[in-house]
Design a protein around this nucleic acid. Structure first.
Lengths: 168, 168
DNA sequence: AAATATTTTCAATAATTACTGAAAATTCGA
DNA sequence: TCGAATTTTCAGTAATTATTGAAAATATTT
């Protein structure tokens, strides 16, 4: 298989995968492109390689920067902005875990706390089932939160060696 | 807060959360409704409670069954089908991990194996960066795969006690 | 400060995804 | 086996989400 073909396939699949994770296809494709590009790219490079408009590139790159997955790069003597992505997949994963925890898990747990204050007769089957569900999620969330925190703070070698032994 | 209100909020938030995870809003809402319902519900119950059409309920319930998150229940003497959802959130999480691993991680790893066979001059910077990315993902994926396998095979008490100590 | 290059915004539009509802298929009881 | 109840399918439509492209804003050079 030729490199150009392989790149194309990687970008396309990474994009499709993104849609299964609540990430828009193009954003995932831009990320994929930057991950396999040795040097930083400009908006025009991305436009050309993915065949998308300037506005689209701008928007998605900005989102990727918000996620902490892409950085602006200043190249001295150049007027244009360049963009580059973190290439260490472990760091990428940690960053995504960190962001999703902040954006999703934390607010969800806050809501569960509120919902567990629901009032009514504890003997009521409806209420009991509801509270059991909420409390189950709270407990699970607290543990997941903890686990993810440790994961995010750990380094790659820990993940690649120790973690496995512990799990086995 | 009243129960009916709390339920409504839970269903709505669980649905919104679904969209961040590549799951359609309605499917997540149906799941939420079944999780907090003490008794199995019929298609008509779900239609009434979520204000959606019969076809929509049918489709989403079928998907939830495919995901292993909802079961058909036969109630003797009743002609209609009833549906119920697993209420133990740890089992729900394990099931989702299992399915996503099968549907997403496994195929992705298969693709990486293919892409790592790309041919060309190993000195080429473009090729080198590409291969580094692919191999990084392969290595990461193999470990994640392993970790998730152990998680899925472990039981709740392990998660709630041992896992934390190990991680700390 | 004017000219030029570059980035950002956002209303209009396109593309995608989800939903409805009625017809077809299936199931089940009599 | 027939008829009624129930489930499933799916073409048409609605709702949502993503993209374009050109105008406005910003930054840089001369």
């Amino acid at each position: 298989m030729k490199l150009s073909e392989a790149k194309q396939q990687f970008i396309s699949t990474w994009g499709a995968m993104g849609t299964h994770w609540g990430i828009n296809r193009t954003m995932a494709q831009v990320h994929a492109l930057l991950m396999i590009s040795p040097d930083p790219l400009t908006q025009d490079d991305v436009m050309a390689q993915l065949n998308i408009s300037r506005g689209n590139v701008n928007m998605n790159v900005r989102d990727l920067i918000d996620w902490g997955l892409v950085d602006r790069v200043i190249i001295s003597g150049e007027r244009k902005e360049y963009f580059t992505a973190e290439k260490d997949i472990w760091k990428v994963a940690k960053q995504i875990i960190k962001e999703r925890k902040k954006r999703e898990l934390d607010p969800m747990m806050k809501l569960m706390d509120q919902l567990s204050k629901v009032d009514g007769d504890k003997k009521d089957k409806e209420l009991k089932t509801f509270l059991d569900a909420i409390n189950g999620i709270k407990k699970f969330g607290a543990h997941a939160d903890n686990m993810l925190d440790v994961l995010v703070k750990s380094d790659e070698s820990w993940f690649l060696s120790t973690a496995l032994k512990l799990f086995k």
